[in-house]
Simulated scan of single mutants.
Amino acid sequence: MDPTFDASIYVRAPVINIANGVTLAHALVAACPEAAPENVAKACTKLKAAGEAGQKALTARRRENGALSEEDVRGLDREADGSFGALRMRLIATSMLPAERYPQARRAGELVKELFGDDGLSFLTAEYSVQNTVMTSIVEHIQEADLQPEIDAIAGPEFLEQIGNVLPRYDVMVRDRLQKEVAATSNLATVMRAIQSAIVSYATKVVGMVDEDEPATIEAVRKALRPLDAHREAGARRGQGGAKGEAATSAPAAPAGPGAPVAPGTPGTGTDGGGALSAPV
C-alpha cells in the first residue's frame, strides 16, 4: 500500500459548524464514485439525507430569526431607554431646585442615587437581557420600599406609569428571543451531529474500498474523499488567521466518533396597560 496514504485522517469526525457541514456533505456526495459498492452507495444516500436535513434546519433558523422584526425590537428598546432616562432626568431636574424653597429637591437627589447608583443609565447600553434584569431590579426596589407614592408626588405619576407599561413588554421580548435561540441552537446541534456521524460512516466505508494489491483504488478513494482534505486544509488556514471565520450560524456539537474534536458555535407574561407599577414575573 502507498505509505503516504493515511486512512485514519478520513475516519475522524471533522470539525464543522452547520453551514460548512452542509457544504461538506454535499461535496462528498457529489464526489462519490459512480460504481461504488452497495455499502458505500447506501452510506452516500444517508449522507445526502443528512446534508439536506441540515440545509432545511439552517433555512428554518434564518426564517425564525427574520420573523422577529429587529426594527420593532429596537423601537421597544428605545422606548424603555427613554422611559427610565426620563424618570432619572426628572428627578435630577427637581434636585437642582433650591432646597430651602422646595423641600422635595433634597429627596429627589437621594432618589436618583438610590435608584440609579453611581453608574447612572449605563445599563441601557448593555445587551437586552442584562438591561431587562437591571430595569426589573429598579422596579422591584421601588415596590419593596414603597417608593411609588413619593416618586409620583415629586416627578408626577406619568413616569412610573410609563415604566409599568413598557417593562412587561420588554420582558416578554427578551424571554421570547432567549427561548427561540435556545430551541434553534439545540435543534441545529442535533442536526450537525447527524451530519458528522453520516460523514464518518461514509468515509469509513469509502476507505474500505482500498485494495492493497490495486494502487488505483487508493487514488479512487483519495478522489472521493478530497472534500475532506479541502475542509481540513481550510480549517488549518483559519487557525492561522489566513481566512475569514465561519458563518455565525453555528451550534455546539458532540463528537461523532471516539475522541473526535468538534468546534463550538445564546414565556414571560405581562400586560401592556398602564396604571400601578409592576415588575415582570
Rank of each mutant, 00 (worst) to 15 (best):
residue 110 E to L: 08
residue 205 K to I: 02
residue 189 A to M: 05
residue 66 G to K: 09
residue 112 V to S: 05
residue 97 L to P: 04
residue 79 E to G: 00
residue 187 N to M: 08
residue 11 V to N: 01
residue 111 L to I: 06
residue 232 R to W: 07
residue 80 A to D: 09
residue 262 V to I: 03
residue 138 I to R: 00
residue 149 P to S: 13
residue 137 S to N: 09
residue 56 K to N: 14
residue 230 A to F: 11
residue 118 D to Y: 07
residue 122 S to I: 01
residue 17 N to M: 03
residue 45 T to I: 09
residue 120 G to E: 00
residue 130 V to N: 10
residue 237 R to A: 12
residue 184 A to I: 10
residue 192 M to P: 00
residue 256 A to K: 04
residue 58 L to F: 09
residue 21 G to M: 07
residue 155 A to S: 15
residue 70 E to C: 00
residue 14 P to G: 07
residue 161 E to G: 13
residue 175 R to W: 08
residue 113 K to S: 11
residue 227 P to Q: 03
residue 173 M to Q: 15
residue 67 A to P: 14
residue 261 P to D: 13
residue 251 A to E: 06
residue 27 A to E: 10
residue 35 A to Y: 13
residue 119 D to W: 06
residue 93 A to S: 15
residue 46 K to W: 15
residue 187 N to I: 02
residue 152 D to I: 02
residue 31 A to P: 04
residue 231 H to G: 02
residue 255 P to T: 08
residue 248 A to V: 13
residue 208 G to V: 03
residue 208 G to M: 02
residue 279 A to P: 15
residue 277 L to A: 04
residue 222 R to M: 02
residue 279 A to C: 07
residue 259 G to T: 04
residue 199 I to H: 08
residue 253 A to T: 12
residue 113 K to H: 09
residue 13 A to P: 06
residue 67 A to I: 05
residue 73 V to F: 14
residue 273 G to V: 05
residue 169 R to K: 12
residue 22 V to Y: 08
residue 171 D to P: 08
residue 238 R to H: 04
residue 214 E to A: 15
residue 111 L to Q: 05
residue 82 G to T: 05
residue 67 A to Y: 14
residue 175 R to I: 01
residue 215 P to S: 15
residue 109 G to D: 08
residue 234 A to I: 00
residue 83 S to R: 10
residue 113 K to Q: 13
residue 184 A to F: 07
residue 278 S to C: 06
residue 210 V to L: 06
residue 174 V to R: 08
residue 28 L to Q: 10
residue 58 L to A: 13
residue 280 P to D: 01
residue 80 A to W: 11
residue 221 V to C: 06
residue 37 P to V: 04
residue 86 A to G: 10
residue 245 G to R: 15
residue 71 E to P: 00
residue 259 G to C: 08
